[in-house]
Write a protein that binds this DNA or RNA. Structure first.
Lengths: 234, 234
DNA sequence: CGATCGGGTGACAAGTCTGTGACGACCGGG
DNA sequence: CCCGGTCGTCACAGACTTGTCACCCGATCG
């Protein structure tokens, strides 16, 4: 992805082992994040409240106030209730409760994990929260830009002329970004109920859409035997 | 884990041999469960309905109303339909039917069994229900991750390309995590009804699945003579 | 120890799915 | 009325999937 975000997302990394913190922090920084750290639960809570990070990587085992407690406390306050949290733990079995309602972490990783995977998870979590693509006016994917109120699509600085069906198909796909949508679903959403239409018609329109999108067509995946998907990233 | 659950889960133990009941009850109590008991099918049904236990350990051989009948009856009523049931039996061969849809037990143990294993199974069953794996969007097992709406499977940070049949097979296995599923049952769930298909076909698909999953294939167990199982843990 | 059974494996032919080009129907504007 | 553009359908080819089979091997059992 070429366009750097204006402001680096700030990630709070919490672990009582300095080496672990260092490893995680290094990789997140390399991926373009701003990183702040904490070594125990108390200071984690303090920093989370004062510096309002965009996401948090939280070790489960901490001296005194452990990760679960930190998580719960954060969830109680409105200001931090929605903070995306990724839990780190040594054993997968511990995590059953963590993910569920009881604690409310958003994701978890078991040690040892690949740094690349951690970075991926953090990115996904941020993307999901920040984008809130379901009801946004403008959807951006690389240099593809979909401006819904203007009914306008651009690839780079080139404007793409789409018919209204093509436009609607594209927006429906993009709004459920990442999720596969069956042809039947697309028919319902794009063609409103008129299910008398052949599902293969969807294919034809996808083809025309891809043709017009040119290089940006790569954002539309075919999932064989299932349907189509607008990619999360390239 | 340090934090004890607020309320002890209540387990109903059913066997016509008092010694067996005693043995099981003792071990479950030692593991922190509350235990209630029954010596025959009739009273088992009564207690299951009146005292709404969290799980049930049920001997297959009972005078008059046997374990299979108890199981079936419980499944018929909405209030007890989801009650996790572990069947006890003398011979493994009997269990093919018990596990399948016909009866609907969740797990089984063949006598003689180690008390420790029984306790493990009970815990797992409860965990599973708490986790609500039956209808979650994302199932995670170690570094294997199954994202159902995205129709996407990753091992660590590597994405695995599965065909739709393979994907469905994997999700069906993973959703009933820990429980053995017979080939017949898998055929029903993955191939919807079309039981005209050879059960050996399941083997082939499991093979292809394992091939693609690489190291994460360890999550899929073969249970000789019965079927396949998605491991609870490695 | 040999026989039997169940499951893993590689190959394969038939079937299924999708991309593609073409076509006729339709519509609104000249 | 003609025309350009859009739309739904179709037939076809190529790629991929999938169910089956024969074979082998290790486990199991007598």
């Amino acid at each position: 992805m070429s366009s750097e975000p204006r402001v680096k997302p700030k990630i709070l990394v919490v672990d009582d082992e300095p080496d672990a913190v260092e490893l995680v922090a290094f990789n997140l920084k390399a991926a373009g994040f701003e990183v702040i750290t904490a070594g125990d639960g108390e200071s984690a809570l303090r920093r989370a409240r004062q510096e309002s990070p965009d996401a948090m990587v939280l070790d489960l085992m901490l001296p005194e106030v452990d990760g679960i407690e930190v998580c719960k406390q954060l969830r109680r306050h409105p200001r931090t209730a929605a903070l995306p949290i990724i839990m780190l733990t040594a054993r997968a079995e511990e995590m059953d409760r963590v993910i569920g309602l009881e604690v409310g972490a958003d994701d978890y990783l078991t040690k040892p994990f690949s740094p690349r995977e951690l970075v991926l998870r953090v990115k996904n979590l941020l993307k999901r929260r920040a984008r809130n693509e379901e009801d946004t006016d403008v959807i951006q994917a690389g240099d593809l830009r979909i401006d819904i109120p203007r009914h306008q699509v651009t690839v780079g600085d080139r404007e793409v002329q789409l018919t209204s069906t093509e436009f609607k198909l594209l927006t429906v796909l993009a709004r459920r970004r990442g999720r596969v949508q069956s042809r039947e679903q697309l028919l319902r959403d794009v063609w409103n109920y008129e299910s008398l239409i052949d599902t293969r018609t969807v294919d034809t329109h996808v083809r025309r859409l891809r043709e017009k999108l040119g290089p940006a067509a790569r954002w539309i995946d075919t999932v064989r035997g299932v349907g189509y998907r607008f990619r999360e990233s390239l």
